[in-house]
Design a protein around this nucleic acid. Structure first.
Lengths: 193, 193
DNA sequence: CGAGTTTTGTACTGATCAATCCACAACCAA
DNA sequence: TTGGTTGTGGATTGATCAGTACAAAACTCG
């Protein structure tokens, strides 16, 4: 054994996440990351290997946090339609609270696409898990009678995820909360009974 | 009078637009722009002043081109619902043709937000004009009976623009054309009679 | 022809980029 | 205490960044 770390690794990842979330991948320099985490360059590279590797960690952290929150809402009480409405409300509140930074996954998709590396894998993984949650909810909605039938749960899930992305972009361009709620409401009306 | 330009300014803007569209603003270096346009550094700076100014030109060019195409479809023949369906089909074809680069405006919104400068102004201007076109179409749809009433044309337009953005992001993450068509179809079903 | 004006190519600027090196500090086990 | 091991700070690396300086080239107009 030897000298112990002077910082919490998870807290550092969280700080890096906020830096990337605020400025985007390319525009965030390694110095920005040092400033955000409070670590020296040596510690950053000793712990995370490279800027891209730290970004991948930050992205995975963001995804896990976001999915946990979404899962809590989508598997919570109420009909599927009510849970989806709560999800949209939560998303809009989230945007206003976090200064309209959008979604790190959506922002990264727009900036980098889906590269053929660990970052791309993290993006695909998040998408996949979002769709799993939404598909389950869509299926349950038909059973509990709150959602219309006639569409496959997979298609409904893709539609909901697309709406989520659309709202994220909408928030990024500064649309009002009222407009965003109207969009969410209209989207829900397409699938509710 | 003096020595004439050896290049077409509009063609250079167009080439720069493709470079920015492919790699994003930050990741596109001035050397990339020289390579893409075929110009030397002097010509680029002599003509366009700075990287950001050239980006603004490229963005405006992209916006004008896109709006012209959209206007042609949305003010074309058929009911409003048919024109909107054609718009979505065109968008999806466009994505497949251009290698899933998404929309330059959406990508820029995600990367930079809406900064308080000429670039931000160009983004807001594009959004505004898209909404004008979509609002008109929504209004016409109620009159020609192809769209449902009960929602304000402005809300319907915001919903459509959000769906467009959502599809752009969806394409960026590599979703299938079938999935994208299903989303467009579901979105249309929310507003058609 | 030239005089005047603009474009162009090349070399260069200082700044910043991601990443590394290394001396030293801090700790654990023996 | 000490030997081995790991973490940390600060200086430094070469590459690349956006942007500029300047002289030669290419043109128009007189």
């Amino acid at each position: 054994m030897a000298r112990p770390r002077e910082f919490d690794e998870t807290a550092a990842v969280q700080s890096a996440m906020h830096a990337f979330w605020t400025r985007g991948y390319e525009a965030t320099s390694t110095q920005d990351l040092c400033a955000a985490t409070g670590l020296g360059r040596s510690s950053v590279y000793n712990t995370f290997t490279s800027k891209k590797a730290l970004f991948q960690r930050a992205l995975t952290h963001y995804s896990a946090q976001g999915l946990a929150g979404r899962k809590a809402v989508l598997e919570g009480p109420g009909t599927a339609a009510e849970r989806l409405a709560a999800m949209f409300d939560g998303l809009i509140d989230d945007e206003l609270e976090h200064g309209r930074r959008g979604c790190l996954v959506v922002n990264t998709l727009a900036e980098l696409g889906t590269p053929d590396d660990e970052v791309g894998a993290a993006l695909r993984d998040d998408t996949e898990k979002q769709l799993v949650l939404l598909t389950a909810c869509a299926r349950e909605g038909v059973l509990d009678g709150s959602l219309r039938g006639g569409r496959t749960p997979a298609d409904v899930a893709e539609f909901l995820l697309s709406t989520i992305s659309g709202l994220r972009v909408m928030s990024r361009r500064g649309a009002s909360a009222e407009a965003m709620h109207a969009v969410a409401d209209l989207a829900l009306s397409a699938i509710t009974r």
